[in-house]
Design a protein around this nucleic acid. Structure first.
Length: 937
RNA sequence: GCGAGGGUGGCCGAGCUUGGCCAAAGGCGGCGGGCUUAAGACCCGCUCUCGUAGGAGUUCGUGGGUUCGAAUCCCAUCCCUCGCACCA
């Protein structure tokens, strides 16, 4: 196998490096590009199409803004480190990168700079690719994709047709969110509520655009939608199986989907209308004392259009509409319509109100109100002097008792037992609901808060929706053969540039051949990101969006890392797409296709879910602990850090600072410390490489060091696996510190140090890959570290127990020296416990109750007389808490290995003895796990 | 209001899933010592209280409980963060 050196690496990089400074420090500006070129040259990060079931490590691809920020760096450092770790462990790893490159900002940038979105975006990609490269992130660039590339977005169009054939595409008039500034519609998810801090100026509660913060208006337009609600149930249910996802993300999706089980029943109104209501409390129907509809309800709207007949309704509706979506109207406001509804349960006529607290888009926008058992109904009834009729009282086992409840005072919203409900009195709430559905000719229904996914955007820089509007045939799909529908040249205009592109827009109908126009809407960019992880499997395929067999084998993504801001939209849409793609047979994992998967649920039967494990990296805060922002001027540019300290330092600092999902504050001291640490390791490596400084005397101290090396490798393995990189790095620092201490001893041998540095380099490899390669070549190892083998990960025999013994003993010595005020200890004698005490413990541990009896019934121990009896009595009190111990010989060996630590620390002679070789009074003070100590001043 | 996640020593933050060397990792800050002409960096200790031989006491939001034994399990309660929220 070939071995590499910086010099050769430099050749790859084709840099003309200055002569190396003779200092024992590395120059990041020199080594980093060199090793990046070496990896590239050796195709280290490429994965062959023929690999089966690789570890799929994925970071959310970046929007092509032109520059990486710290959030990106953290995100990509995490996936890169994990991917490198898995590669060292011998896994084949798929770690691709691409560009989320459609979207409005490119249009804005094009306007500002008098260029076009494509050119602008391509420049951004070039620049960001360089930045990723300079960070040393290892991607398979042969799988690079860009969503603005027609080779990519034609498949958006193709998939759109697949979805359409599946009945998942709809065009309908939608009341949409319109951003006047971006001149586009927004999905509900893209409308944000302004945060409380700016809630003064009368716009409180109004939605704002997620991109530009403009106040969002509503308009009615014909729009294309994906009927994601068809999958609402499954999207909700399978969340339970996503145990590799953070709880909060799953919860956010649950909230978003908002499943609600209830019943709908029709009420006849005196207007002649039959109005459907939706309720989760059908059991309370006998207590309905009024009926309420939202101002937007069609029956109300009709009334409002006849102000002479319904003056109060008209006035109220006007007020409500003027107030906008939000709570400018008091919660108990409303207007009596003059009409009545018949309560099907009681036959009574109850008054019909328009009330703003009834929301148009919840349920059916109409409800019967039961003031006795609903707080809002109660408040409304009090305000409008409507009677309150109790129909439920607490059940026997409820917290409250029936006579404590006064529904005139406050609503009792709990389930209970029916009263005042005629023949149904005494029935439980749940049972009543079940029966009433049939009794009142209702329907049991499941409602969702989730709305269909509106994908139309009146913008240029997106995927054209492949439909043609023909005067005779209506909307006709563009045939597959005519795909892609490519974007026409960009023109500067205030509206939608596609509308202005007349030549592009005018076409003929694929069905009748007559004149027709193209759909000028483009797709929401979340369409692009809903399946990009599949395209990576076969990025150049030209007859399908992805290779189904390979994708079915390679999916799901094993580790997906990205920001929490995508908790709902992107992740929900990607889940939706994956399910649809399975249902149209483009994906099929099939049982057993994923040998490593042990859990059942979504993973056991085909690829139903895209992401097995999800991590949301925490924020990188500014030095002051606040979110980085231009206004606070606390931002840190990744480029500056890389220039000054190098990518390795930045990566190491970020990974040491906190676990991936936690936020942390930027710290110049931390960066400095990371850099010094790397320089320190490198320096030690140069000392080993020079060789002549150390001997080859392999003593007890070397044994100690070697055990620590093995233990560190084991810890690092475990911690990397668990995504706690900071813990792995912490123990690596401890090992380096030990190695340096050892190296500074006169009797230091080169072998343990070299072995230690070797292991340290490999552990650091995933996080600080350039320095690690540099050290690897200093040690004259074969090949590239990036392709080396992960160090064996077995902790040494009884490591924990021995380590505890040593640590406790050292602490005890310190305690004694301190408490007894010993100025200058001359000699320290340590005696391990005699074999008979070990034997006594063994017997005691196995004794059933009578510890003293058990111990003293042993022939050998009885001969020890009182000493044994006393020891047995001590044991009896703590028999439950006795730990594992080493044998006397093992204790002796462990302490021998560590004796140098005491010697160095106290500058005293240290003697480790068997009990038999020690003075009687000393030996008698010893216990297993706790040797006797004598210090001579 | 509903839901999720949390409350640990001066601060940050592990540990709590599988109760027991847990007075509780690590870092920062502070103190002492080493190295150095000096500073910085680096290295070694200490950093709840008391204690002249490794001991004792009191701690992990608060109050109860289970247990030989609880930061760790159970119940109640307060507080914090996030998400949803006039959701029928």
């Amino acid at each position: 196998m070939k071995s590499y050196s910086t010099a050769e690496a430099r050749d790859w990089a084709m840099t003309t490096g200055e002569p190396e400074p003779q200092e024992r420090r590395f120059d990041h500006a020199e080594i980093e590009p060199a090793w990046q070129a070496a990896w590239d040259d050796e195709d280290v990060f490429r994965i062959d199409d023929e690999e089966t079931d690789p570890e799929y490590v994925l970071a959310m691809f970046p929007y092509t803004s032109g520059s990486l920020h710290m959030g990106h760096v953290r995100n990509y450092t995490i996936t890169d480190a994990y991917a490198r770790f898995e590669r060292l462990r011998g896994e084949s790893v798929l770690h691709p990168m691409g560009w989320d490159s459609f979207g409005l900002p490119a249009e804005n940038a094009a306007e500002e700079r008098d260029t076009n979105p494509r050119e602008w975006t391509m420049q951004c990609i070039d620049s960001m690719k360089d930045q990723l490269g300079s960070m040393g992130f290892g991607y398979d660039w042969e799988r690079e994709i860009a969503t603005c590339d027609p080779d990519y977005y034609q498949w958006n169009q193709w998939l759109f047709q697949q979805f359409r054939e599946e009945g998942l595409v709809d065009r309908r008039a939608e009341e949409i969110n319109w951003c006047p500034s971006c001149e586009t519609v927004l999905a509900d998810e893209q409308v944000e509520t302004p945060d409380g801090s700016s809630g003064e100026g009368g716009v409180a509660g109004e939605g704002i655009c997620w991109r530009c913060d403009s106040v969002v208006e509503t308009r009615e337009l014909d729009q294309w939608v994906f009927t994601i609600t068809d999958y609402a149930d499954e999207l909700l249910e399978e969340l339970d199986g996503l145990d590799g996802w953070p709880a909060n993300v799953r919860e956010m999706q649950r909230n978003w989907i908002g499943r609600q089980e209830g019943d709908s029943v029709e009420f006849d109104l005196s207007t002649g209308d039959a109005v459907e209501i939706f309720t989760t409390r059908l059991d309370t129907i006998h207590g309905a004392t009024f009926f309420a509809m939202s101002p937007g309800h069609e029956v109300v709207q009709r009334m409002a259009e006849a102000p002479e007949e319904y003056p109060e309704v008209a006035e109220y509706v006007e007020r409500a509409e003027a107030a906008g979506d939000d709570e400018d109207l008091p919660e108990t406001s409303g207007a009596f319509t003059g009409e009545y509804a018949v309560n099907p349960a009681t036959g009574e006529e109850i008054p019909v109100y328009v009330a703003d607290y009834v929301l148009e888009d919840v349920g059916t926008g109409a409800l019967y109100a039961v003031p006795a058992h609903d707080e809002r109904d109660h408040a409304f009834a009090e305000e409008h002097d409507i009677p309150i009729q109790q129909v439920v009282e607490p059940a026997e086992d409820a917290d409250a008792s029936a006579d404590e409840i006064d529904v005139q005072e406050a609503a009792y919203p709990e389930d209970g037992v029916l009263v005042n409900s005629g023949e149904y009195d005494g029935l439980g709430s749940a049972e009543a609901r079940e029966q009433f559905v049939d009794v009142f000719d209702g329907e049991h229904r499941i409602e969702f808060r989730l709305r269909d996914w509106l994908i139309s955007r009146q913008r240029y820089w997106g995927t054209p929706i492949p439909m043609i509007d023909c005067a005779d045939c209506g909307y006709v799909p563009v045939p597959d053969d005519d795909l892609p529908v490519e974007l026409p040249e960009f023109v500067h205009t205030t509206g939608n540039p596609l509308d202005a592109a007349e030549d592009w827009k005018q076409t003929s109908c694929p069905e009748c051949g007559g004149d027709a126009v193209r759909e000028t809407d483009t797709m929401d960019t979340f369409v692009d990101s809903s399946w990009y992880f599949l395209r990576y499997c076969s990025p150049d395929l030209d007859d399908a969006p992805f290779d189904s067999d390979r994708a079915s084998d390679w999916m799901p993504v094993d580790q997906y890392v990205g920001g929490i801001e995508h908790a709902v939209m992107h992740l929900l849409y990607a889940r939706f797409f994956t399910k649809v793609l399975d249902d149209v047979d483009l994906l099929d994992g099939g049982p057993g296709s994923d040998a490593s998967g042990t859990s059942s649920g979504p993973w056991s039967d085909g690829v139903r879910e895209p992401f097995r494990n999800l991590t949301n990296q925490g924020m990188v805060l500014g030095e002051d602990g606040n979110k980085m922002s231009k206004s606070r001027d606390n931002g840190v540019s990744p480029q500056r850090i890389v220039d000054e300290y190098g990518a390795d330092t930045a990566r190491l600092f970020i990974m040491e600072a906190a676990q991936p999902e936690k936020e942390f504050a930027w710290s110049p001291e931390g960066v400095e410390s990371a850099n010094q640490f790397l320089q320190g390791v490198y320096e030690l490596a140069t000392r080993v490489a020079d060789g002549d400084e150390f001997g080859d005397d392999h003593g007890d101290v070397a044994d100690y060091v070697e055990r620590e090396i093995d233990a560190t490798a084991a810890t690092a393995t475990e911690e990397y696996e668990a995504f706690r990189f900071n813990h792995a790095l912490q123990s690596t620092r401890e090992l380096v510190s030990l190695l340096r201490r050892y190296a500074d001893r006169d009797d230091a041998a080169s072998e343990p140090i070299e072995q230690g540095i070797d292991v340290v380099a490999r552990i650091l490899g995933p996080v600080a890959p350039h320095v690690a390669e540099e050290i690897w070549s200093l040690l004259d190892r074969d090949g590239l570290l990036a392709e080396a083998e992960w160090p064996a990960a077995e902790p040494p025999a009884d490591y924990e127990i021995a380590q505890r013994l040593v640590e406790n003993t050292r602490e005890d010595v310190r305690d004694i020296v301190d408490v007894a005020d010993i100025e200058d200890p001359q000699s320290i004698t340590v005696a391990v416990a005699p074999a008979w005490k070990h034997r006594a413990i063994e017997i005691a541990t196995n004794a059933d109750g009578d510890v003293v009896g058990a111990v003293m019934s042993d022939e050998e121990l009885r001969q020890k007389g009182n000493e044994a009896a006393d020891f047995a009595k001590d044991l009896a009190g703590e028999v439950e808490a006795i730990d594992e111990h080493l044998s006397p010989d093992e204790e002796l060996a462990a302490l021998d290995r560590a004796a140098w630590l005491l010697r160095d620390e106290f500058g005293a002679d240290v003697e480790i003895l068997h009990a038999e070789d020690a003075a009687d009074d000393l030996a008698s003070a010893s216990e297993p796990g706790r040797p006797a100590i004598h210090i001579e001043e």
